[in-house]
Design a protein around this nucleic acid. Structure first.
Lengths: 396, 396
DNA sequence: TCATCTTTAATTACAACGTAAATTTTATCC
DNA sequence: GGATAAAATTTACGTTGTAATTAAAGATGA
């Protein structure tokens, strides 16, 4: 392909992405978002309309002069993304169209990554079933985006922690081959940060830190408006910074890691210990119901005001706040978003986090960083995975 | 000025900067460095040669084909930078030409920023004298670059900690007016990072952290190849992260700050306390000589192997290493450079820093980050200040 | 030692792109 | 309802980039 043609395809992709993130745009807006001239954007959009990728969608409301034509992505072009969101215990999949509308009810599977270190085949079968049940032809699927825990190098497509594969160790190419669809993988916390950046509280903000409070503590970093991964792809290893005074041994082999005192799994253990030592709590009953994960029971109880759960969660949130104080000192971000499973208990988390920041941050720094709880935490794993596909696929 | 002319001037400036950083370049190299086409770079360089800014400098050694013409900046164009490097106690100034060759012996002045909170006038007089003694006409001076401690917003030209000025509080415009030369200011640690990025160990590396170990502990961050300042300009407040177990109160009002146990001023106090409690040390004699700062005596003693100084400095370095472990977890940089006054005692510092990193870092992360002691620490404050001018002036 | 081939630089021609002026369309004001 | 103002398109032209061409140097081999 000639250099000129490559450039053209690049702009074509940029235009599609802009419409994906912003739904409906005028030519002037597209020109500004892509940093390309209006004449060039105009011809590119015309081509995309002719191809069927983009639809003309009536006139924009007047802003005092001639009304602009608006454009949006065409659902009837039948291009879909498969979004997969994994955590330590649960894997979820859904299929979206280009407007991020769900095409088939999401499916969930329990898959404990530490129990099934070679769960790759289970994952493949799960995805194959889901895709074939959807009835959507493979050639209409742009790609499969997967957010997963572990040390993931997104560029090379390797997960150094889970889903080890034989040969070159390249999980992405292995899955791509197995499914017959382009697969893109990234760390779950990076994926959540991507979702916040494009669709959530971080939209349009340059420096955003997204904390993923779940079975572990993760951090996705947005710096200068793009996902920051560090020199070798492992930036944001927030959960193992030396911080806590606790002496408990972490899975990483060190003591004092943030994760040891703040992951929801640990909080559940703490609650169980308290209960068996005689403390009364609604959790005692809830934990008997095994149709739901203990961690989710715990969060429900905290949200419902159970004193034990609230107390344990508050303590953890305070420690996380202390970690965030360090982050604020180093990065000076505009915004910190609290997300992940624990975000449902937003009211209980916010106060101690803010309190810790007040206590451990220089006031001048603290005042420049907003703290928010994610409003899209329940779907951000899937939305981010879909975004990963859009960012990387070819739109052929 | 039309948009076209602006673009032309931008490329002109880019070419001059590239030659400033790389000394001697061919047209092909310039084209790659500026991301501009060869024809365009060729005409731009020809214009610069005609103007006298750039000199043709013979043929490059052959690489197997036709030999390329090389170009370098023309000293005889008579354009100079004034570089000012300030710390809490000492201010230094020098005048460079475009090849960073010293035009007049540097001058040093003791100026304690905390004792003279309004030292602005002293600084102005000092610089005026130096400039007039140099005999270089003002119109040949491209600008004055100043690296100074404090919360500095380089874009707005404001120092929120020192040198407060009346009115709009804009130190840069105040100094520019007083000196009649464009002035550019930045935080001293950012300046040192800039110097490492352009002339030191960080050359060509994308993610570099530069630690400034001096009267305090500073951090200059290079992320994605450029100086990172954070959302409101205060990124890298490394010295006040909650870390140490010490209970000493920091100047910032908190306890446990890194600075409380690691700044050279504190180390001197520790040494003095030990000496008066009866410990023998060569420092006892050295501290009597007041022609040199106590901190420098301390570093000399450590470098010379004095057991007391070595022991105190090693302990501090270990704590700094613990802080760096946090930094590595969050940023995952390619390189950490240890610089500042303490860099002269590199051999004593390196071992405990590395030890702390081994102890507090996940091995996978630690192995991806190199630690080095700066080789240009003695002049990096001045070099960086000159660079600040080159980065921001107009070359008229 | 000279001719030819290979490699890299510099130049040139042409196509792509951006800028800014001109034109069109719409809304608002009188 | 017409004049005016504002904003969106279109057009024309100048700048920039791409790629082919020419030039210059070294390498190779008879």
């Amino acid at each position: 392909m000639t250099a000129t043609k490559k450039k053209y395809h690049q702009l074509r992709r940029e235009v599609i992405k802009c419409l994906y993130y912003n739904n409906m745009l005028t030519l002037t807006e597209l020109s500004k978002l892509t940093n390309k001239s209006l004449p060039l954007v105009t011809t590119t959009v015309n081509d995309l309309v002719a191809e069927g990728y983009v639809l003309e969608s009536g006139l924009a409301p007047s802003t005092g002069g001639r009304r602009a034509l608006t454009f949006l992505l065409n659902q009837k072009k039948h291009r879909y993304t498969i979004a997969v969101s994994m955590d330590q215990l649960v894997t979820q999949v859904v299929i979206y169209d280009l407007l991020n509308q769900v095409q088939m009810a999401p499916e969930t599977m329990k898959l404990s990554l530490s129990e099934y270190p070679n769960g790759t085949k289970i994952l493949i079968q799960f995805l194959k079933n889901y895709i074939s049940n959807s009835g959507i032809p493979v050639e209409e699927i742009l790609g499969v985006g997967i957010g997963m825990p572990g040390f993931v190098n997104a560029d090379f497509g390797i997960n150094h922690t889970f889903f080890k594969v034989e040969g070159d160790g390249n999980l992405r190419s292995y899955l791509t081959k197995a499914l017959g669809i382009p697969v893109f993988i990234d760390n779950d916390s990076s994926i959540i940060a991507l979702a916040e950046l494009k669709f959530g509280a971080g939209k349009g903000i340059k420096d955003v830190m997204v904390v993923n409070i779940g079975w572990g503590i993760g951090l996705g970093m947005v710096i200068n408006g793009t996902l920051f991964r560090g020199h070798s792809g492992y930036a944001g290893e927030f959960s193992h910074i030396p911080l806590s005074e606790s002496n408990k041994l972490c899975s990483c082999g060190k003591r004092g890691c943030l994760e040891v005192d703040t992951s929801i799994l640990v909080l559940v253990d703490k609650a169980k210990a308290k209960i068996s030592s005689g403390v009364n709590s609604s959790l005692e009953q809830l934990f008997l119901d095994e149709t739901k994960l203990a961690g989710d029971h715990f969060l429900d109880a905290a949200k419902g005001g159970d004193p034990l759960a609230v107390s344990i969660l508050s303590d953890a949130a305070f420690l996380i706040g202390k970690g965030l104080a360090t982050l604020i000192h180093i990065i000076n971000p505009k915004l910190i978003v609290l997300s992940g499973r624990a975000a449902v208990a937003s009211k209980i988390i916010m106060a101690p986090v803010q309190q810790a920041i007040n206590e451990f941050c220089i006031p001048r720094l603290a005042e420049y960083t907003d703290i928010q709880v994610s409003e899209i935490s329940k779907e951000s794993g899937l939305l981010g995975a879909a975004t990963l596909v859009i960012e990387n696929c070819n739109f052929n």
